[in-house]
């Protein structure tokens, strides 16, 4: 069972690869459409700016592939951090940018002012996550487990049902998604010690069951 991590020039893929390798997954890092099509599960990681991330996916011919052939055919796709945000319709980060449009909703700045004192953004560090589903990503994890976050923008999915987890920093926001076969986390499971590895294990089990 091969897991493909999409290499589209956005941020640190090594830690994601290291985490999956540690869990014993057969993992490949690639932007070759053929490799992604052949994989059992696809991971869209990424750190950086939304507009640039989308531009890279389009240049590589992967935007349509992810929407039509991976998500569209109900195959497992895991978005992490920027990879989660890219799943939505559009983002207001440095202007307006179209996203992949896989999960209905938009991306906007976290905890906008006024706040007194202002909330520090980027939201960096360990924060509690409240799971809204008992199956899926958070299966078997303790309530309010802490995960590592680094981000300035947040997803606002249209359908409440797509939210799998919530966190709070100046406001309550959706930090995990489960939209059919498309799952995502705003935090970094690959950087969240055992809790993060447990979450990735849940996803691998889901991939195996597909």
């Amino acid at each position: 069972m091969t897991i493909a991590i999409i290499d589209y020039g956005m941020g640190n893929l090594t830690s994601v690869r290291n985490a999956f390798a540690h869990l014993g997954a057969d993992v490949v890092v690639s932007h070759d459409p053929g490799v992604l099509r052949a994989a059992k599960g696809v991971v869209l990681p990424g750190v950086g700016a939304f507009g640039e991330g989308m531009a890279h996916l389009q240049e590589l011919g992967l935007a349509q592939l992810l929407k039509d052939e991976i998500a569209g055919q109900h195959r497992p796709l895991l978005g992490i951090c920027l990879g989660m945000q890219l799943l939505l319709d559009d983002s207001a980060e440095h202007g307006q940018h179209k996203g992949l449009g896989i999960v209905p909703g938009k991306v906007r700045r976290l905890a906008p002012p006024p706040h007194d004192p202002p909330y520090r953004v980027p939201h960096v560090g360990w924060n509690h996550v409240e799971a809204s589903k008992t199956e899926g990503l958070f299966k078997g994890l303790p309530e309010n487990e802490a995960f590592y976050f680094v981000h300035s923008f947040v997803c606002q999915p249209e359908r409440p049902d797509d939210a799998a987890g919530w966190s709070e920093h100046g406001e309550r926001f959706v930090c995990a998604l489960e939209h059919g076969s498309v799952w995502a986390a705003q935090f970094h499971p690959e950087k969240s010690h055992k809790a993060g590895l447990a979450l990735l294990t849940n996803w691998l089990e889901f991939v195996a069951s597909c």
């Binding site: 090594t14 290291n18 540690h22 590592y148 970094h188 950087k191 010690h193």
Partner: peptide, 9 residues
């Protein structure tokens, strides 16, 4: 270090 490190580095 990174290959052993499942925390932010």
């Amino acid at each position: 270090v990174a290959s052993h490190c499942f925390m932010p580095l």
